[in-house]
Simulated scan of single mutants.
Amino acid sequence: MTTTTTTFLDAASVARYIDHTLLLPGASADDVTALVTEAIELGAYSICVSPSMLPLRIPAGADLKVAVVCGFPSGKHHSAIKAAEAALSIEQGADEIDMVIDIGAAKAGRFTEVQDDVAAVRAVIPAPGVLKVIIESAALTDAEIVGACQAAVAAGADFVKTSTGFHPAGGATVHAVRLMKQTVGDRAEIKASGGVRSFDDALAMIDAGATRLGVSGSAALLSGATSAEPAGSY
């Protein structure tokens, strides 16, 4: 991954961008408990887990949000099923929902269907709940990225998100994040996820416009801050 950037942040600042993520199919309740503990120790913004892991016990006073995926990882679920999954997750304590669009619909240029899919999930997330929409940017052309982002924002998304991290086409790129930011402007935020593994990767994504990062190896990423240099050195 190209990581040229002019942004400088320390480890504690970058940690507040991170959704500390565990979405492996074999994850256990004990694994998620350890994830929560590590996220709090690192100062991450949130954890991101599968819906079957809910409800969770977050220690009293912990400054930690809970994000849950929806329609994950394929996006090939009926909108009504995605909406039901999101609604149950909110009922069980999720603060944020990361939903996957129907990538095939975006590839076919059926962006009205993409918008309707997002709108169905948006409708079951009351304020202040946050909706992030995963477009699987590595599988899309630039024009398809633009169309998917426009559809997500029109349906009320709070964030557009690059990737599930499970698609063979790959994960986040600086180019995709920059294009997504150019497309949505101030109407939505950007989450870079999938392949964000080093501290320099994190800075590059933030420099391109990301305001949230999906990271599974957060401790290793943040440990790289010790070698970071001030702005102008990248």
Rank of each mutant, 00 (worst) to 15 (best):
V215R: 01
D142C: 03
Q92K: 10
V130N: 03
A123P: 13
L56G: 14
E38W: 04
T112M: 10
V114E: 12
P51G: 01
K82G: 05
M180R: 00
V100E: 08
I206K: 01
G26Y: 12
A143M: 05
Q182R: 11
G195F: 11
T162L: 04
T2K: 06
D186S: 13
I58R: 07
A148I: 10
S46H: 11
A219H: 07
G104T: 09
S46Y: 06
E113L: 14
A208E: 00
E113Q: 14
D95T: 08
G195P: 09
E38T: 05
D186M: 12
T33Q: 13
D207F: 01
L221Q: 00
A139G: 06
A12F: 10
C70S: 02
S193L: 14
L42I: 07
A105Y: 02
L179S: 00
A210I: 11
K161N: 14
T211V: 14
A108L: 15
I190N: 01
A220S: 04
A204G: 06
P230D: 12
L56E: 14
T164S: 09
G43E: 02
P73S: 14
H77R: 05
G71Y: 03
F166M: 14
A15G: 13
A148V: 12
R212M: 12
A60F: 12
D200Q: 13
A119D: 12
T211G: 15
A210R: 01
I97A: 00
V124N: 05
G129V: 10
V130G: 06
L54N: 02
I135T: 02
V66I: 15
A138S: 15
A138D: 05
E41I: 04
V32I: 15
A210Q: 07
E189H: 15
A172Y: 01
T6C: 09
A138R: 03
E41D: 15
G61T: 11
D10E: 14
T33I: 11
A86Q: 03
Q92H: 13
A148K: 04
L131H: 02
A67L: 08
V196F: 08
E136H: 00
A106R: 04
A172F: 11
D63N: 14
K65W: 14
G61P: 04
T5P: 02
T37I: 08
E229H: 12
S79H: 06
R187E: 13
I135S: 00
I135L: 09
V36C: 10
A157D: 08
K82D: 05
I134D: 03
V32T: 06
V36G: 02
A83H: 03
V153K: 01
A94K: 05
S50W: 09
L23R: 01
L22N: 10
G147A: 10
A11D: 06
R178Y: 00
L221G: 00
T141S: 15
M1F: 12
V36Y: 08
A67H: 05
A172M: 11
R178D: 05
A12Y: 07
I97W: 00
I125S: 05
A139S: 10
S218Q: 09
C48V: 05
T211Q: 15
Y17Q: 10
E189T: 13
D95Q: 09
S163N: 07
A15T: 04
K132I: 06
T21S: 15
A188G: 03
G75Q: 11
I145R: 09
A220M: 09
I103Y: 04
V49L: 04
R16Y: 07
H20S: 08
I18V: 15
I18R: 05
